[in-house]
């Protein structure tokens, strides 16, 4: 299993595991709620709710 670190889920306040190699700006799915969370800092990893999908997103 890949290395993980813990971070606080911004929605539930629970400690969750996230991959250790996350990047600022990356999106992860909360294992608690399934919500998309954005990595806003690393070392330590801080998360916030990711922005909602916008109509002009894509390729």
């Amino acid at each position: 299993m890949a290395d993980t670190v813990t971070a606080e889920d911004p929605i539930t306040g629970e400690e969750i595991e996230v991959p250790a190699d996350v990047e600022v700006g990356e999106i992860i799915d909360s294992p608690v709620t399934g919500a998309e969370l954005e990595v806003i800092s690393v070392d330590p990893v801080e998360l916030e709710e990711a922005p909602e999908l916008e109509e002009d997103w894509g390729e």
Binding site: E23, V24, G25, E26, I27, E38, V39, A50
Partner: peptide
């Protein structure tokens, strides 16, 4: 504005080759 798997792959390749990277949100 969002680091997708695609950007992560690109960042990884750039780092592996020793290039400097400015991540610009």
């Amino acid at each position: 504005s969002r680091i997708r798997r695609d950007e992560k792959l690109l960042l990884s390749e750039l780092r592996d080759r020793g290039h400097e990277i400015e991540k610009i949100d």
